[in-house]
Amino acid sequence: MTTKTIYSLLALILCISCSTDSSQTTQTPTETTYFPPLTGTAWETKSIKSLGWKQEAVQPLLDYLELKNSKSFIILVNGKIVIENYFHGHSATSNWYWASAGKTLTATLTGIAEQEGFLNISNKVSDYIGTSWSSLPLNKENLITNKHLLTMTSGLEDIDNGDAVNQASLTYKADAGTRWAYHNVYVKLQDVVAKASDQSWSNYFNTRLRDKIGMDGAWFQSGNNSVYTSTTRSMARFGLLMANKGKWQSTVVLNENYFNAATNSSQNINLGYGYLWWLNGKNSYHLPQSQLQFNGSIIPSAPNDMFMALGKNDQKIYVIPSKNMVVIRMGDAADNVNLGLSAFDNVLWQKINALYQ
Score class of each variant (00 low, 15 high):
Thr3Tyr: 12
Thr5Ser: 12
Thr5Asn: 10
Thr5Pro: 06
Leu9Gly: 09
Cys15Met: 11
Ser19Gln: 12
Thr20Tyr: 06
Pro29Leu: 09
Pro37Thr: 04
Thr45Ile: 09
Ser47Lys: 01
Ser50Lys: 14
Glu56Cys: 03
Pro60Thr: 02
Leu61Asn: 14
Asp63Leu: 05
Leu67Trp: 07
Leu67Glu: 14
Asn78Gly: 08
Lys80Gln: 12
Ile81Lys: 15
Val82Arg: 07
Ile83Asn: 13
Ile83Gly: 11
Tyr86Phe: 11
Phe87Ser: 04
His90Val: 04
Thr93Ile: 11
Trp96Arg: 13
Trp96Gln: 13
Ala99Thr: 09
Ala99Ser: 11
Thr104Arg: 07
Thr106Leu: 09
Leu109Ser: 05
Ile112Cys: 09
Glu116Cys: 04
Glu116Pro: 01
Gly117Lys: 10
Ser122Tyr: 12
Asn123Asp: 15
Lys124Pro: 10
Tyr128Gln: 10
Thr131Ala: 11
Ser132Leu: 09
Trp133Ala: 08
Lys140Ile: 00
Asn142Thr: 06
Leu143Lys: 10
Asn146Leu: 11
Ile159Trp: 15
Asp160Val: 15
Gln167Tyr: 03
Ser169Tyr: 00
Leu170Arg: 06
Thr171Leu: 11
Arg179Ile: 03
Arg179Ala: 06
Ala181Val: 06
Asn184Thr: 14
Asn184His: 12
Asp191Val: 00
Ala194Gly: 07
Ser197Arg: 04
Asp198Trp: 02
Asp198Ala: 09
Ser200His: 03
Ser202Thr: 15
Phe205Ile: 02
Phe205Lys: 04
Phe205Pro: 04
Asn206Met: 10
Thr207Ile: 12
Thr207Val: 12
Asp211His: 10
Val227Trp: 05
Tyr228His: 14
Tyr228Arg: 09
Thr232Ala: 13
Ser234Arg: 06
Met242Trp: 05
Ala243Ser: 10
Ala243Val: 03
Ala243Arg: 01
Asn244Tyr: 00
Lys247Ile: 00
Ser250Lys: 13
Glu256Pro: 03
Asn260Arg: 02
Asn264Gln: 13
Gln267Glu: 08
Gly274Trp: 01
Lys282Cys: 02
Ser284Thr: 13
Ser284Gln: 14
Tyr285Gln: 03
Ser290His: 13
Pro303Asn: 07
Asp305Leu: 00
Met308Pro: 06
Ala309Pro: 12
Ala309Ile: 13
Ala309Asn: 11
Gly311His: 04
Asp314Phe: 03
Val319Thr: 03
Pro321Thr: 05
Asn324Val: 08
Asn324Glu: 13
Met325Pro: 07
Val327Ile: 14
Ala334Ile: 05
Asn336His: 11
Gly340Asn: 09
Trp349Cys: 05
